[in-house]
Design a binder for these strands. Structure first.
Length: 565
RNA sequence: UGGGGCGUCGCCAAAUGGUAAGGCAGCGGCCUUUGGAGCCGCCAUUUGUAGGUUCGAGUCCUACCGCCCCAGCCA
């Protein structure tokens, strides 16, 4: 390689290094064409997001393109409904495939022709063995398989039989088309793999047109080649299949031979990525569906209020390598906070209201000015109504506070954010001794939150005027599972045993500041001192529902948690 | 025990034979009209283990150990 061909690869992940090197050396004519190939059999999840960011990212970095191709070769699992969901999620995540939208099913005719060509070259045969018989002859990890008795059929007979498979003369499972490779291969994938099977099932796009369908191994490499893909990126469990990918492309006359490169898929702690498992959780009724805010799906995260930019930055941040990995949930939450801190307007909301009466405050209301986003001056300010009767957070008052509790307590003075200093004069309790109301006094000189005499208070509380409050339901979420690895199940146990019983907590009677009445569905806000919240997609103006996306980092929780031991 | 992939801080991850980046988490501190944000500091004498080559090894060689994937007519 000449000096001029050398690519600068320092700091790049191993895939980007390969691609940069290929581009520099003029391989594939310097082009970069990737593809994202989802199977429409479920919703996209955060693990897919990593692949999406990689596929589209690598292409964009070289002025190339990324195709979106639905890998819809198995009509028994796939549905058009999922195609729509995937399209929606991809757009939401912020990616654009332009005109390059494809379906593997678009290639059925062409793939059939390739299969015929393979048969003609003596490299594939029609096998009459049943599924069980094929399995029995596959051999084991340490023993070679035994060839099918149909392996030596003539090209003519194979051609005839394959045509009859296509014509519908055989029932499901009666015949398969198999590659003629090596039943003794140490790589199980190469032991005469099945290329086509009979599935008399309507397809979501081709309807009843076909009753034979290609398998992944046959359809994928050829689809890549037909589309002129240069780098076919996939996850590590496909490493063994690369031999077959290459074998098929070498066995046929194809437009090009893309390079398959495998990387480690993303795993997230406290959740699962398996579609099968997610489906099981849904079907058992433990969540509302694919878009439940506790799900690791893109639709779930959207509903939860995670911004797409946060997901992208998370995916870029975790990197690309070949080592099995489990990213801590805390890291995802970090990305979400980082984005929302910059962009979310602030508001005040009292989730667990405790009534406060300011005894020396007049009957007339007033409006105070509040900053919309201290991180973004252009977000401006708003007016918040203040009155004699307020709500504060129940957790912001303690009758007998511990040492480091800086909030309200009998005789203590605190600041009400953007409003006044107040002092608690009296605690009103009900018959059972529960605190039901606080009687306080305010200092009119502290309007806006500063004392002209320079005295300081340690605590600042959020509040909402009772009369002006918007009532709403707020849903607090925790991780779906209470353990890091839900699939690590003890003997006789089940992963559902690890479900977190507190993953959803509904607070039905929260009090929000009036500005929140005008919030748009899907909009993301910071409720000051508490976290980031998103107005649920199924919310109505009459019955607003807010989802907590993530809490604010809470150093008091840490201190109080330590106290409890 | 066949084949393949992988072992660098609790979790990710750089380092391309020249003397272990960075992020997350954690821990101290500063600041604060969000106990938020921000800021400062601490956090691998050592890269799974043992040998070897080399002036020099996370990088090269040998052996061992551990983890993950593969026996769907799923993708």
């Amino acid at each position: 390689m000449g000096l001029e061909d050398q690519a600068e690869t320092a700091g790049l992940d191993f895939i980007r290094s390969i691609v940069a090197t290929d581009v520099a050396s003029g391989k594939h004519g310097g082009a970069v064409v990737t593809r994202f190939p989802p199977e429409p059999s479920g919703h996209l999840h955060i693990g897919h997001a990593k692949a999406i960011c990689l596929d589209f990212g690598v292409a964009a970095e070289h002025g190339g393109r990324c195709h979106l191709r639905f890998d819809d070769t198995n009509p028994t699992r796939e549905e058009g409904e999922f195609v729509e969901a995937i399209l929606r999620d991809l757009r939401w995540l912020g990616f654009d495939w332009g005109e390059y939208l494809y379906y593997a099913s678009d290639y059925f005719e062409r793939l059939y022709d390739y299969a015929v060509e393979l048969v003609g070259r003596g490299k594939a045969f029609v096998c009459d063995l049943s599924s069980e018989e094929i399995a029995a002859r596959r051999g084991t990890l340490t023993e070679a398989g035994t060839p099918s008795p149909f392996r030596e059929r003539s090209v003519e007979e194979n051609l005839d039989l394959f045509a009859r498979m296509k014509a519908g003369e055989f029932e499901n499972g009666e015949r398969t088309l198999r590659a003629r490779i090596d039943m003794a291969s140490p790589n199980l994938v190469m032991r005469d793999p099945i290329l086509y099977r009979v599935h008399k099932v309507p397809h979501h796009r081709t309807g009843e047109q076909w009753c034979i369908y290609p398998l992944y191994d046959f359809a994928h490499c050829l689809s890549d080649s037909v589309e002129g893909i240069t780098h076919s990126l996939c996850s590590l469990e496909f490493v063994d299949r690369r031999a077959l990918y290459d074998w098929i492309l070498d066995a046929l006359e194809t437009p090009c031979h893309p390079q398959q490169i495998e990387f480690a898929r993303l795993n997230l702690s406290h959740t699962v990525m398996s579609k099968r498992v997610l489906r099981e959780i849904i079907e058992a009724g433990h969540v509302e569906g694919w878009d439940d805010p506790r799900m690791p799906t893109l639709s779930g995260m959207r509903r939860r209020g995670y911004p797409p930019a946060a997901l992208r930055s998370f995916c870029e941040g975790v990197g690309v390598a070949k080592r099995a990995n489990t990213i801590e949930m805390a890291r995802l939450e970090h990305s979400v906070r980082e984005e929302l801190n910059r962009t979310a307007p602030r508001a005040m909301a009292v989730l667990d209201p405790l009534r406060v009466v300011i005894e020396n405050y007049p009957e007339e209301d007033e409006e105070l000015e509040a900053v919309n986003n201290p991180e973004d001056p252009s977000a401006g300010t708003r007016r918040v109504p203040f009155s004699r009767e307020l709500f504060i957070e129940r957790a912001d008052f303690m009758e007998d506070p511990p040492k480091k509790f800086f909030r309200l307590a009998p005789g203590r003075e605190v600041r009400l954010r953007y409003a006044y200093f107040i002092t608690c004069e009296e605690v009103v309790k009900d018959a059972e001794g529960h605190v039901v109301e606080l009687r306080c006094r305010y200092d009119p000189a502290t309007r806006g939150g500063d004392a002209p005499d320079g005295r300081k208070v340690k605590g600042t509380l959020h509040w909402v005027s009772q009369r002006h409050a918007v009532r709403a339901e707020v849903r607090l979420y925790e991780t779906l599972f209470e353990v890091e690895d839900p699939m690590d199940v003890p003997e006789g146990g089940h992963f559902l045993d690890h479900l977190n019983p507190d993953s959803l907590r509904r607070l039905e009677d929260c009090a929000l500041e009036p500005a929140l009445a005008a919030a748009e569905v899907g909009s993301r806000w910071q409720f000051e001192r508490q976290g980031y919240f998103c107005l649920d997609g199924r919310s109505t103006p009459e019955a607003p529902v807010w989802n907590r996306s993530v809490t604010l980092r809470d150093s008091w929780a840490k201190v109080s948690g330590k106290r409890k031991g």
